[in-house]
Amino acid sequence: MVDHQQIRAWRPALAGIDEVFHARITDHVYPMHTHDSWTLLIVDDGMVRYDLDRHEHGALDQLVTLLPPHVPHNGRSVTPTGFRKRVVYLDSSQLEDSLIGLAVDSPVLEDPLLRQRIHQLHESLEHPGDELDTESRLALVSERLRDHLQRRVEDRTHVRDAGIAHRLRDLLDARFVEGISLQEASDTLHVHPAHLVRVFSREFGMGPHQYLTGRRVDLARKLLLSGMSPRLVAVSAGFYDQSHFNRHFKRSLGTSPGRYARSGPQSDLAPTQI
């Protein structure tokens, strides 16, 4: 059972916080439940084990736990001695409901400065009359929480964009000889052409056209060294014509295709006379 003498709960006269909850819990097990508010939790002693969105997590001291509203979770002590926690329940004026999904996957924040600021917020909440100080501390805490969630947006965007870039590279690899237009790639991958160029360039340090040309030049080198004439190589490697081939080959290697083909060691034996 919970010893109710170990629980303190109140609603402060401060916009943005629905409730403050301080407790030492020993053998009580919280069943699955939800809140309308964001649960901002710090543990001062012990460790809490909880399930959120069917995944198990842990809350312990030195870390910050942010549980989003409307998502079921439970809670129980990991050790026989229980745990001591402090919670503020933040309303949507501090964190918008649109951020809920970002908090579900990873509710634990390893941020010593944020942990310290939450501790200071709780201390300020204990002293009526310091409303300006409390309001200021709440603003700093909410700002840092939003920064964490915003970085997750950026991280997810980067991962998605990297995936798009690699899919475009695969498409270019499969079609580098016959070629593919940017619009065709856009239609195939269902991504705007400008975004394709942007994410590919950011991921690989070159544009799609430069990559495609590099693949063609690389093939041309192999064909030239195998003995194929430059004229046939131009067609076989996907270049528009001989002039197009010569220009890009020289830009890439600093020499013409013909000179490149003849640059290897020559046989000391004269050709057989017939």
Rank of each mutant, 00 (worst) to 15 (best):
T134Y: 04
D111V: 10
Q266G: 09
P193H: 10
E126R: 15
P208E: 05
S37P: 00
H55F: 07
R137I: 05
R54D: 14
D53F: 14
D44E: 13
K85C: 09
S98I: 11
H4I: 14
R156F: 09
V217M: 04
V20Y: 08
F245A: 05
H148R: 06
S124N: 06
L224R: 05
H166F: 12
R54F: 12
V43W: 06
V199Y: 10
R259V: 12
D45Y: 12
H127M: 09
A194H: 11
A194W: 08
I164F: 08
D268G: 08
R259P: 02
Q183G: 00
R156A: 12
R54S: 11
P193M: 10
R175P: 00
V191L: 04
F83A: 00
R202H: 09
A165S: 08
R86W: 08
T81D: 12
E110W: 12
Q62Y: 12
G238V: 09
R231A: 11
L132P: 01
S92Q: 11
I25M: 09
G264T: 08
Y30K: 03
L269R: 12
H35K: 02
E135I: 01
N246Y: 13
V48W: 01
A220E: 02
Q6E: 12
H119I: 09
M228V: 08
G205D: 03
R167C: 05
R86N: 06
H195I: 07
D218W: 08
T79G: 02
L168Y: 10
D3R: 12
L212R: 11
I17H: 09
F245E: 00
Y89V: 03
R76E: 05
D27T: 11
D130M: 13
G207C: 02
I118C: 04
S256E: 11
D45S: 12
H209S: 11
H73F: 13
A234P: 04
W38C: 02
D155Q: 15
S93P: 00
H158A: 15
G16P: 02
M47P: 00
I164G: 00
D187L: 14
D18Q: 13
F249E: 00
G227L: 05
F83D: 01
A15N: 07
S243H: 08
L67W: 05
K222Q: 13
D44A: 07
D161I: 09
H33V: 04
P208C: 07
R216I: 03
R115Y: 14
S226T: 06
S243D: 08
V197R: 13
F245P: 00
H73A: 01
G264V: 04
